[in-house]
Amino acid sequence: MPNIENLEDRIIEIYRWHYLDVYRFLICFTGNQNDAEDLTQEVFVRVLNNLSNFNTGSLKTWIFSIAKHTAIDHYRKKRFSSIFKEGFFKQLPSSEMEPDDLMERNEVKIIVHAAISKLKPDYRAVVILRGVNELTIKETADILQCSESKVKVDYHRALKILKNKLNIDPGEVIGNANG
């Protein structure tokens, strides 16, 4: 039974390497920790059940594609109105930052998250994948099953909408707005 042990080891390794990124994506997409935990579990059950069907391409991209479809299915079922309301894009605070600066940064993040939640799902997914998870344009295109140029255009348009709504540079909060 060495094959089973190897398969089990591979599954454990896949989970260990990709769990946090998938969880982060889902928490950003749903805005709810409990839903994100449930959906993350569902994603890895789907990965386990379909791993034998995976044979080419990037494993990470394939897993994120499953996560995206799981999140969209959830979104369609629930049709929730507020995403990111709890502000889960947490960064480790710098010990050099003043408490007032930390508070201001967190307030801006919450406002940005609220604005992101109002974007149409395609724009929201691109912003989360590119701006939050910092995936490449190619990885994002593979996950969203679209062209790289569509990713670039949607990301640019989404950031432009955010900038207009917020009157700030969203790149300062969610990542580099260029590229």
Rank of each mutant, 00 (worst) to 15 (best):
Y75E: 12
V43W: 04
K60Y: 01
V43C: 06
F54R: 02
L162S: 03
K60P: 01
P99H: 02
I143W: 04
E98W: 00
V153Y: 14
T40H: 01
K109Q: 11
V108Y: 02
E98R: 10
V173L: 01
F80P: 00
L129A: 02
D100V: 05
I161A: 06
D100I: 10
N50S: 15
F54G: 12
P99K: 05
L39R: 04
P93T: 06
N164Q: 14
Q145M: 14
P121R: 03
D101S: 09
F54M: 11
P121D: 08
L39F: 05
N164M: 07
A115T: 08
L144C: 14
S65P: 00
K118D: 07
I168Y: 01
A125R: 00
D73I: 03
I168M: 10
K138L: 11
S95T: 10
H69S: 12
Q41M: 04
I111K: 11
R157P: 03
T136M: 04
L48D: 06
K118S: 09
S58R: 11
K68H: 13
L144G: 00
L102E: 06
E107F: 03
K138E: 15
T61S: 15
S149T: 14
N167E: 13
V45I: 15
V153M: 10
A71G: 15
I110N: 08
V151R: 06
R105D: 11
T56P: 00
K165N: 15
K78L: 12
H69K: 14
S94L: 07
T61W: 00
K68C: 01
L162Q: 07
A114K: 13
V112L: 07
E96C: 00
H69P: 00
S95Q: 04
L159Y: 09
L135N: 10
V153E: 15
R76V: 14
N49L: 11
I66M: 10
F89W: 11
K165M: 10
T140C: 12
V153Q: 12
F44S: 06
V151A: 10
L159E: 08
V126F: 01
K138V: 09
I137T: 14
K85G: 07
G171I: 02
K163L: 04
H156Y: 15
G57E: 05
P121C: 01
V126D: 01
L48A: 08
L166I: 03
K118T: 11
K160I: 03
S117E: 12
L159F: 13
V153H: 09
H74A: 06
S95N: 04
Q41Y: 01
E148C: 09
E134M: 09
V43N: 09
I110C: 03
T70N: 02
L144V: 04
N164W: 05
D122R: 07
K78D: 11
L129I: 04
F84A: 08
G87K: 02
F88H: 13
H74V: 01
S147M: 04
V108A: 06
A125C: 09
V43E: 06
S81F: 07
K68N: 13
P170F: 07
I168V: 06
V151P: 07
E139K: 06
H156T: 14
L162V: 08
L119D: 04
T136N: 01
L162F: 11
N133S: 08
K160Y: 05
L92P: 00
K109V: 02
N133E: 14
K163D: 02
L162K: 05
W62H: 05
F80T: 09
A71F: 08
Q91W: 02
I116E: 10
V132Q: 04
E96I: 08
R46Y: 11
N164H: 10
E107L: 12
E98T: 09
A115C: 05
